[in-house]
Design a protein around this nucleic acid. Structure first.
Lengths: 182, 182
DNA sequence: GATATGTTTCTGTAAGAACAGAAATTAACG
DNA sequence: CGTTAATTTCTGTTCTTACAGAAACATATC
């Protein structure tokens, strides 16, 4: 029998979700295949092995393999073994908040930390060479901002996951309590 | 005289910053040229016109024009006119927090809103067709998460910018007050 | 250790985004 | 209006990244 059409094994709703997640992945710094695999695993009640993923999505085997490795690096996918089956199986983290924390952490590492490091260098050098008072001022402001954000994030990240959920659920009640809102 | 080498008109520190900001831009969903122009304008005490930008960065005129339009769409760059000069001049927003708010808003629009809309569709369809109890469950969890995040964001965004700054500065004091931390 | 099964690395191709340069358009001023 | 200056749109090229398919490599089971 010929290879089945991609996604044909899924319900329409599942197809829709997998396709969309794949598209959004590109906006989240994840490539399409990786995001599709992740979507598929999120919807799967059971861990899947690479061949199942390959067939369902209709992508190359190597692509599946590389994408799975990358998803494991991110920490959103885990490898598991089923009794009586030699093959590696893969399952997604199920808790959405946990996944979010991981993604946030990864993005901070990619999108903020390098800039913060650079700003520290720049303000230091600007100070030494002393030229460009305006530039130095602006760089210092930027650095302050990134330092604040970074510190804020670190504290949030150190919290147990439920605490963050609670804060989010509290909504603007939290602000009233803090005295920042009428 | 030949066109000057790119960035030659800038101090070493400024060059370093512009180059880095351009690189990071690609990780933030902004292309390199756009981010470089933005960096340049942030460091410039005076508004610049397109030709100055072109010369300084050594990129094509059309590229400057398109990038400036895009930056204006984002809202992080404004067009201004200097008395006695026909040319359009451009300046960056100076307040880092304001810029951050804009970027955050734009990213939510690109990275969350479409997914939230899709999840609403999916859970609705899954409910109607009734198939796939597990899939429906997972989609519903995802939707709940995105709804919570979205609502949380909307409230934060409605606040005056200083309030957010205050919360950030408070750090974990805030959590103690909220009774979420020993 | 031979074979079957599963995984990774390598190489070329294809698709997409960014960009330069030219052409076309718009606006300003005489 | 005609001319000049400024900006945008268009077209083709280059660069990057994702990806398929093949080849090489590992691992387990007999």
């Amino acid at each position: 029998m010929n290879p089945p059409a991609p996604l044909a094994q899924l319900t329409p709703v599942e197809q829709k979700f997998v396709l969309h997640w794949g598209e959004m992945g590109t906006r989240w710094g994840i490539n399409r295949t990786e995001a599709q695999i992740h979507a598929l695993l999120m919807l799967s009640p059971k861990p899947l092995h690479a061949e199942q993923i390959q067939e369902t999505l209709g992508v190359a085997r190597s692509n599946v393999s590389n994408s799975l490795r990358e998803l494991q690096n991110w920490g959103v996918v885990k490898m598991v073994h089923l009794p009586g089956d030699r093959r590696d199986h893969f399952e997604s983290l199920k808790n959405v908040w946990d996944m979010f924390r991981i993604v946030l952490h990864e993005r901070k590492k990619r999108e903020m930390d390098p800039t913060l490091a650079l700003l520290r260098e720049c303000t230091q050098e600007a100070e030494r060479s002393g030229n460009g008072g305006y530039t130095e001022k602006r760089l210092r402001e930027l650095q302050n901002f990134f330092e604040t954000m970074s510190g804020w994030y670190d504290q949030a990240h150190a919290l147990p996951q439920e605490t963050l959920g609670k804060v989010a659920q509290m909504g603007d009640k939290a602000l009233k309590i803090l005295g920042l809102r009428a």
